Amino acid sequence: MSQAQERAFVDLAPRYLLDVPRHVAATSVHPDARIDPAAVYGREAPLVVEVGSGQGHAIVAAAASRPGDDFLAVEVFRAGLARTMLDADRVGAGNLRLVEANAPEVLETLLPEASVHEAWVFFPDPWHKSRHNKRRLVKPGFGAVVGRALRDDGMLRLATDWEDYAVRMREVLDAAPEFERAFAGEWAPRFDGRAMTAFERKGIAKGRSIRDLAYRRRSRV
């Protein structure tokens, strides 16, 4: 990390970064670990979670433009977390918190069941080589993982610039009993709340189509 990013962990982490009890690895979450969102943010408000927030461009922009909502960025790469904290501090996004942890463990363990209003998965690692596809985040079983954390009628929003991954995401979530499509046709329209990032522009410049998907959490009853 750069010196500025190193300083972010010293100066800003106490304000933005959640202290998570670990289990077997540095980014693991202890099975008994839980957070109370109302206590974390000091209020009751809709909670939006971005899984794999990268450098935080999308979630910082959203937190700054939606002060009435709370936001949680989940990421394992420290440089990205540092960049997110620096940008959040610059725009005064006091409604944003970060967690350095494996996303499935955050969704399955750390967050209370049905506590999330929206979950975002924007441009996850495509693991595009066929022998690496099994490492993808969105695969069979992901619906149950994210569905646990989402409230009834909560939204799951996804985007990718890899066509085969987009198709696979759609197949996985169409088959997940926890979800129903929240779009008509082949793909969802671009989510207005997703800020255009350098990563997305790079994909467009390479001639890739950006694919959005949107799913609604079915009622548990």
Rank of each mutant, 00 (worst) to 15 (best):
P37E: 05
R148V: 07
A188G: 08
R217G: 07
V10H: 13
R78K: 15
P189A: 04
A26V: 12
W120P: 07
D212S: 04
K139I: 13
L137D: 01
F142N: 03
N95V: 05
V76S: 06
R168M: 07
R22T: 04
V51F: 01
D87W: 04
L213G: 11
E108W: 05
T197G: 10
N102C: 01
L96F: 02
E178Y: 00
P37M: 08
D153T: 15
E100A: 14
P21G: 00
K139Y: 02
V40E: 08
A93L: 09
A144R: 11
K139H: 12
D11A: 12
N102T: 04
A4E: 14
H57W: 12
F123D: 09
E186S: 10
V121I: 15
F183M: 09
D153E: 15
S53R: 12
A13G: 08
P112V: 06
F122H: 15
L137Q: 09
L81V: 15
G52L: 13
D36C: 04
I59S: 07
R43T: 14
G94C: 06
V76E: 02
L72Q: 10
V116M: 07
R15H: 14
Y41F: 15
Y41Q: 04
L110R: 04
V60N: 08
A39C: 04
L96Q: 06
L96V: 07
A25E: 10
R15I: 10
V99C: 07
R136T: 05
S209W: 00
P140A: 09
A39K: 15
V74C: 14
L173I: 10
V172G: 03
E118L: 13
V48Q: 11
G143F: 10
V40K: 13
G42C: 03
V99I: 10
K202C: 00
S2Q: 08
S53T: 14
G203T: 02
P112Y: 02
S2E: 06
G207R: 10
T109A: 04
V91A: 03
F191Y: 11
R97E: 06
E118T: 15
L173P: 03
F191W: 13
A159V: 12
R43I: 12
E100P: 00
N133H: 12
R194K: 06
V138N: 03
A198G: 08
P177Y: 02
A103S: 14
F123I: 11
G54F: 13
A195L: 04
A198H: 12
M1F: 01
V91S: 02
L156H: 08
T160S: 13
G207H: 07
G207F: 05
A103W: 07
V76T: 15
W127E: 02
V146C: 06
H128R: 14
W187G: 08
E44Q: 15
L110S: 00
A39F: 07
Q5L: 01
N95K: 05
R148S: 06
R190M: 07
V29R: 00
V106Y: 07
R15W: 05
